[in-house]
Computed example of a mutant assay.
Amino acid sequence: MKTYFIGDLQGCHAQTVELVEQIQATANGPYRLLFAGDLINRGPASLATLRYVHALARQGLADSVLGNHDLHLLAVANGIRPQHASDTLTEILDAPDREELIAWLRCRPLALQHQGHLLVHAGLLPQWSARQALALSGEVSAMLCSDDWVAFLRTMYGNEPAAWRDELQGADRLRCIINAMTRLRFCTADGVMDFKMKESGSAPPGSGLLPWFEVPGRHSASDTVVFGHWSALGLQLRPQLIGLDSGCVWGGKLSAVCLEDRSLLQVDCPTFQQHSGKQ
Results as ranks from 00 to 15, higher is better:
5 F>L: 03
8 D>C: 08
13 H>I: 00
17 V>K: 10
21 E>L: 02
26 T>W: 10
29 G>N: 11
31 Y>C: 09
34 L>D: 14
35 F>T: 07
39 L>R: 02
43 G>R: 04
45 A>F: 08
46 S>T: 02
59 Q>V: 00
59 Q>K: 11
62 A>S: 04
64 S>L: 00
67 G>F: 02
67 G>R: 07
78 N>W: 02
83 Q>R: 11
84 H>M: 13
87 D>I: 09
92 I>V: 05
94 D>F: 06
97 D>C: 03
99 E>N: 05
104 W>G: 00
107 C>V: 13
120 V>A: 04
127 Q>H: 15
128 W>E: 08
128 W>N: 03
156 M>R: 00
162 A>P: 07
165 R>T: 13
167 E>W: 06
178 I>L: 11
179 N>V: 13
181 M>S: 12
184 L>P: 15
185 R>T: 13
189 A>M: 13
190 D>R: 12
192 V>A: 15
194 D>S: 13
199 E>F: 06
200 S>F: 13
200 S>A: 15
202 S>H: 15
204 P>E: 02
209 L>E: 02
219 H>M: 06
223 D>A: 05
227 F>N: 04
233 L>C: 11
239 P>F: 11
239 P>A: 10
245 D>P: 08
246 S>E: 15
246 S>H: 11
246 S>D: 15
251 G>M: 05
269 C>S: 08
276 S>G: 10
277 G>I: 04
